[in-house]
Design a binder for these strands. Structure first.
Lengths: 222, 222
DNA sequence: CAACTTACTGACTGGTTAGTCATTAACTTG
DNA sequence: CAAGTTAATGACTAACCAGTCAGTAAGTTG
């Protein structure tokens, strides 16, 4: 395919000199373009030339702001994901209600973030590149996985304390996230390739239904 | 890293001519080497030179048996996965017992296949390459996903008929597979990169526990 | 063992790409 | 507005790599 590399920079009115000096705006524009290209092609196949074209600059300018393709990649991941993790933590801290409602809320929230922001594109990229870039996997674990697991643990603890949930061993927490991760992975790889996307809200609701009834204390017990 | 490219070909005794004519054995040896290299590096980063070296032949010989890197890749996927899918179908057809036992058995079986064969490496590769090779995604859907879903449906139908399970909508079946897929993906990408592999049996058991109690009819109902 | 067939080899080709740097031109300052 | 500063450029390079093919030698046949 031959993308018509539409630059993301603004200002298409009257005077448009071929060169512009806009030191402040470049990094943001480059990161936005990098997100587009990296999530469409993965790390290896993404070409700095294309990212630069999308950002409306030359390749030389790109290397003026980021020292290498790999550093650009990491900066893009940071910028895309971290704000969303922080917001999720704040939501959890302030939540009032039962653990069951909170669990449903978390899955629904993840579904919404995945389908409305670029975060949904990250799991595929991270999984694809983890072997080649272990440093990136480390970063992902400590800045995203650990923090998401901590939020889930707080929900589980609340549920156990209230007698709503049975205890869940720490190593099995990933199972509770797996449907939402599967959703993101499917919709960013196989789904589009075969024209069968999954509905995020439906998956979140069904996952909550299956998983909740499993971790809930059944009537007549404890 | 510098792999000491250990050839897979046998015969390290006395007379070892530098060249050998073994038309019959080559394809199998090449596919085995291709599996190693493709699953270690992904499609894009795998180099035919390295695959050839691992198979104990030159690159020219590789192209004598397979017309291109892509065709070699597809042949490797076929050879690795299809026998296991067939075996799973045969197991399901002959199964005698409750739907609950069958569900647990299926997850345990998938865990075993993932950890003892190379099938566990396929999901990561497929997800990584689906966008660049939609044809491969198509093949994977029709030859693996559809067939695995059909086996799961047969379990669900059996359970509903026996009053063990509540009905599950077709589009949500993927949720029931998601923990096992997550297991395979984690253990082939992020897990090794950060030195935290998941125990397949534990994940299978916990996933079955969570999911079963969700799809089971609770005491006192229909 | 000579003549022949063909599996096998590896140097080579044509194409691609991450990163550089001498040059250019957009802005700033006195 | 002239001189100075630096953001921006794009041609270039060094390296890499999928696939080729003229040549080599292993094995076979009469």
């Amino acid at each position: 395919m031959t993308h018509a590399s539409t630059p993301v920079c603004p200002d298409s009115s009257a005077t448009k000199p071929r060169r512009q000096r806009r030191k402040e705006a470049r990094p943001g524009e480059i990161l936005e373009a990098a997100l587009e290209v990296f999530s469409a092609k993965g790390f290896a196949a993404a070409r700095p030339d294309e990212i630069a074209a999308r950002a409306g600059i030359s390749k030389g300018t790109l290397y003026l702001y980021f020292p290498s393709k790999e550093e650009l990649f990491k900066a893009m991941v940071r910028q895309t994901v971290l704000p969303n993790v922080g917001e999720m933590e704040r939501w959890a801290t302030g939540f009032e209600g039962s653990a069951t409602e909170m669990f449903r809320g978390l899955l629904a929230r993840i579904a919404r973030i995945f389908s409305t922001s670029a975060v949904g594109r990250m799991p595929k990229i991270i999984i694809s590149e983890a072997t080649a870039f272990p440093e990136l996997a480390q970063f992902w674990i400590s800045e995203v996985v650990e923090r998401a697991f901590a939020v889930m643990r707080s929900i589980l603890d609340r549920g156990v304390a209230a007698g709503e949930f049975t205890p869940v061993r720490a190593e099995a927490v990933i199972v509770l996230f797996s449907p939402m991760l599967m959703l993101a992975l499917w919709n960013q790889s196989i789904g589009p390739a075969v024209g069968r996307p999954l509905d995020p809200e439906m998956i979140a609701a069904e996952a909550a239904r299956f998983l909740l009834d499993g971790i809930r204390v059944r009537e007549g017990e404890g």
